[in-house]
């Protein structure tokens, strides 16, 4: 909790001395729910793993150096996001905004590279319904990509918002903090995907 000074609406709905305020607590619960969602998709990918690969399987398609760059880009964006929130905690809105721009840039690079990767596969003949591998791969990695896309849209909105707001009080900083939480979560999911889908895929 960055501050005990809340604006009127927040104070009116919240009791004093909360360990964790409503928005953040609720968002943690949402992330718990997201964990089960991705666990279901990863479980599906693993359950169907190796059943029907078709002509184009992980060994033929995956480019580990390329996927490593994706990983590096996304992990770096988590760092810049963290630095941005730290700057906000010090009250430096302009520094925060610079880090948000950096995060946004890295997020867009990640998305661009992923679109490029998917279209390469698609041109090679790996369509949604080509095989069980393609279906579960596109579903799992695609839903992660959708989450990144939503995160990018969220960051854009926050940047726009940071220009309009005159200083940030506690009820506003929590919006940035939940976005950062979300961004780190999406990052963690990617680490799982990179290990389970890409690394395991080429090793077998």
């Amino acid at each position: 909790m960055s501050s005990h000074v809340m604006d009127v609406p927040a104070a009116a709905h919240e009791h004093h001395g909360l360990i964790i305020e409503n928005q953040r607590l609720g968002f943690w619960m949402f992330l718990g729910s997201e964990c089960v969602f991705f666990a279901s998709l990863i479980g599906t990918y693993l359950a169907l793993h190796g059943r029907d690969i078709g002509n184009l399987g992980p060994r033929q398609l995956f480019d580990i150096p390329y996927a490593s760059i994706l990983t590096f880009v996304l992990l770096s964006s988590s760092l810049t996001m963290g630095l941005g929130v730290a700057a906000m905690g010090r009250g430096e809105v302009r520094t925060m905004r610079r880090w948000l721009y950096a995060t946004l840039g890295l997020g867009l690079v990640f998305l661009g590279m992923q679109v490029n990767e998917f279209s390469t596969y698609w041109r090679a003949g790996l369509h949604m319904n080509s095989s069980l591998f393609s279906a579960s791969f596109y579903t799992l990695v695609g839903f992660h990509g959708l989450h990144v896309t939503f995160g990018v849209a969220w960051i854009i909105a926050l940047i726009v918002y940071s220009y309009r707001a005159k200083g940030l009080d506690a009820s506003q900083t929590v919006r940035f903090e939940t976005a950062a939480l979300y961004w780190h979560f999406v990052d963690v999911v990617w680490i799982l995907i990179f290990s389970v889908v890409y690394l395991v895929g080429v090793l077998q």
């Binding site: 359950a47 169907l48 319904n129």
Partner: peptide, 14 residues
């Protein structure tokens, strides 16, 4: 909607 076979045993789905 997209013709995948997650649950379709005919294509190896479960």
């Amino acid at each position: 909607f997209f013709g995948t076979g997650f649950f379709n045993p005919a294509v190896g789905g479960n």
